[in-house]
C-alpha cells in the first residue's frame, strides 16, 4: 500500500482551487466512518502517479495522522488528462465495500476463425468485497467460445468472499457474426423520391397545414350554403 502525503486545506471555492492547482497541488476531500469531512490538498505528481499505477487503496498521511483510504472518485479535465479533484473515503481493511472492477477477456475465441466478432457488453462490473481483497481485475476466458455463444454474468468466477452486484442474467460478452450490408441498386424514380424525402419533417407544421386545410374547407362549405340559400330566396 502506497503512502500519500496530504495537508488540511482551509481555502475553498472554484477560484482558490484553481489557484491551488497552479502551484502543483490538487484539492481533495476525505470523508466516511461518520467522522468529520476534511478538505485536503496533495501533491499533483504523487497522486497522478498513484492513480496511473492503478492504486485504489492508499495510506493517507494527513499532517502526521495516518489512515487507510479508498479512492472513491477522480475528476478529470474535459480532455481527460489532468486530475482536478480526488474524493477519498476512510476504510478499514476488513470492511465490506462496493467497487467497480474491470473485466478482462482472455484468449482468442475458437469461433473467431469462422468470422465471429466478440462483443463485450460490460467493461467493468460492480462487486461487494473486503477492502483488502479488492481484485485488480476479473479474468474471463473466451478461448472456447464458438459463434453465437454467450457468456452471462453468472458464469463469471469471482474471488472468494466477493458478491456480484449486477444482473446475473445479463450478457457479459457474445460472439456473433456481423451480417454484410446489402446495397440494393436504386432505380431512377426511386432516387427522385429519396431526394424529395431528404428534408426532415417539421414538428407542428403538419398540424398547422391540416388545420388550414380544414378551415379552408369549412369556408368553402359555408359559401356554398349561402349561395344555395340565395338561390332558394330568388326562386
Amino acid at each position: 500500500m502506497e503512502t500519500l502525503k496530504a495537508k488540511v486545506r482551509t481555502e475553498q471555492g472554484t477560484h482558490k482551487a484553481r489557484r491551488l492547482r497552479k502551484t502543483g497541488t490538487i484539492p481533495g476531500v476525505l470523508y466516511g466512518h461518520g467522522e468529520k469531512t476534511v478538505s485536503i490538498s496533495m501533491d499533483t505528481h504523487d497522486i497522478s502517479l498513484a492513480i496511473s499505477r492503478g492504486e485504489r487503496l492508499l495510506e493517507l498521511d494527513l499532517e502526521g495522522g495516518r489512515s487507510n483510504v479508498l479512492v472513491k472518485k477522480v475528476q478529470y479535465d474535459p480532455f481527460g488528462k489532468d486530475i482536478l479533484h480526488v474524493d477519498f473515503t476512510r476504510v478499514d481493511l476488513d470492511e465490506l465495500v462496493e467497487v467497480q472492477v474491470p473485466v478482462t477477456l482472455r484468449g482468442t475465441p475458437a469461433g473467431a476463425a469462422e468470422g465471429g466478432v466478440l462483443h463485450q457488453n460490460f467493461a467493468q462490473v460492480k462487486i461487494r468485497c473486503k477492502v483488502k481483497d479488492i481484485p485488480d481485475d476479473i479474468r474471463v476466458s473466451v478461448a472456447e467460445m464458438k459463434v453465437n455463444d454467450r457468456i452471462y454474468m453468472r458464469d463469471m468466477k469471482l474471488p472468494d468472499g466477493s458478491t456480484l452486484l449486477e444482473d446475473k442474467d445479463a450478457i457479459l460478452c457474445a460472439l456473433s457474426v456481423v451480417a454484410e450490408e446489402i446495397v440494393e441498386p436504386v432505380a431512377g424514380a426511386e432516387v427522385a423520391e429519396v431526394v424529395a424525402s431528404a428534408e426532415p419533417e417539421v414538428i407542428g407544421e403538419k398540424k398547422r397545414e391540416e388545420a388550414e386545410a380544414a378551415e379552408a374547407s369549412e369556408k368553402a362549405s359555408e359559401k356554398a350554403e349561402k349561395k344555395a340559400e340565395k338561390k332558394a330566396e330568388k326562386e
Binding site: 492503478g54 481527460g80 472492477v101 474491470p102 467493468q124 485488480d136
Partner: peptide
C-alpha cells in the same frame, strides 16, 4: 486517440 478509463487497474 484516447483509451477507455476503467476503474483503478494495476499496471494500466
Amino acid at each position: 486517440m484516447v483509451h477507455r478509463r476503467l476503474a483503478a487497474r494495476k499496471g494500466a
